[in-house]
Design a protein around this nucleic acid. Structure first.
Length: 291
DNA sequence: CGATTCCCCTGATAGC
DNA sequence: TGCTATCAGGGGAATC
């Protein structure tokens, strides 16, 4: 499940591998993947020949600035991830041209969108659930777009101080839900909200109006600590996420509660609980994180 | 207007 | 064995 650290990992990989490359062609077997422009033929026409000038991230969005003033937006949603490799089509099946484990991994096999680059490589989007979205924007329009303007601040920016954090928080609401709200802070999802709250020793259901300054400070510090650590480790390793090379990240070393239901808390040995919250799972230690 | 539900998808798993 | 029901989950739209 790509969140800020996973998207940042992919963007850094892209910066190393595809800058200054041009798109020769693009293929899909899932017309709904590209949402803008609506007709895939139009998308293909507009993307052909464009050069990748820059790669950046905003929240959980991957952005590629292209020649001609366009920006390609890719949101991986739950199970999408970009892969760089070489493939060819044989009897309707995609087969790897390169040796290696890239396509041996079942999570890498759901290729629904493939860009041919002038480097001789293919940039492919694998997405089991088909929730990912791809959009081609005029750069200016994107910055003015409703979706972009409604995104909250980037938690890792230096300007995101503790004062700013307190200021953007709503007056009420469950803290986990608030941390995952992209309009409040951009980039945090289910994994990292659980991990942040465990480190801060705050119950995920606790209302923000009942949080003291010390608790808020701990949440802020945990956020500033966990996210960079996860980036350093190349993202999570237990879900569908893979980096550009097809490899997993190593966040498992640091994972404390997410998907650890029924296992022991690393601090107090209490059994980690999972509770549903607005259709999402919240994992927490009932002893360390009191309501 | 804020909060909740639905919907987009399909592999994995449980139940019969 | 094989079928069907349930679930996961980001985010936007529809609905309460």
């Amino acid at each position: 499940m790509p969140e800020l650290p996973e998207v940042e990992t992919i963007v850094r990989d892209l910066k190393k591998k595809v800058l200054k490359r041009a798109f020769l062609d693009v293929w899909t077997d899932w017309l709904n993947m590209v949402k803008k422009p609506k007709k895939f033929e139009d998308f293909k026409k507009q993307i052909k020949g464009k050069k990748i000038l820059n790669a950046w991230r905003r929240g959980k969005n991957i952005l590629l600035d292209l020649s001609g003033g366009k920006t390609l937006l890719i949101h991986q949603k739950l199970t999408g991830h970009l892969l760089l490799g070489g493939w060819k089509q044989k009897r309707g099946q995609w087969e790897s041209e390169i040796k290696g484990p890239l396509l041996d991994d079942p999570k890498n096999r759901f290729l629904h969108l493939i860009f041919w680059l002038d480097s001789g490589k293919q940039l492919a989007l694998s997405d089991l659930r088909k929730f990912a979205k791809v959009e081609l924007w005029d750069k200016g329009d994107l910055k003015e777009s409703k979706e972009f303007k409604s995104l909250g601040p980037e938690p890792l920016e230096k300007s995101f101080t503790f004062e700013k954090f307190k200021k953007v928080l709503p007056k009420k609401g469950k803290i986990k839900q608030i941390l995952m709200d992209q309009a409040v802070i951009a980039g945090i999802g289910n994994i990292y909200s659980d991990e942040i709250l465990w480190r801060a020793k705050v119950h995920p259901f606790k209302d923000v109006s009942n949080l003291g300054k010390e608790e808020l400070k701990k949440i802020y510090q945990a956020m500033k600590e966990v996210l960079p650590k996860a980036i350093k480790l190349g993202g999570e390793s237990f879900s569908d996420f893979r980096r550009l090379s097809g490899e997993k990240g190593y966040f498992d070393k640091e994972r404390k509660v997410y998907r650890r239901e029924g296992e022991k808390c690393y601090l107090c040995q209490t059994i980690v609980k999972r509770i549903k919250l607005a259709g999402r799972s919240a994992h927490f230690c009932p002893k360390c994180q009191k309501p």
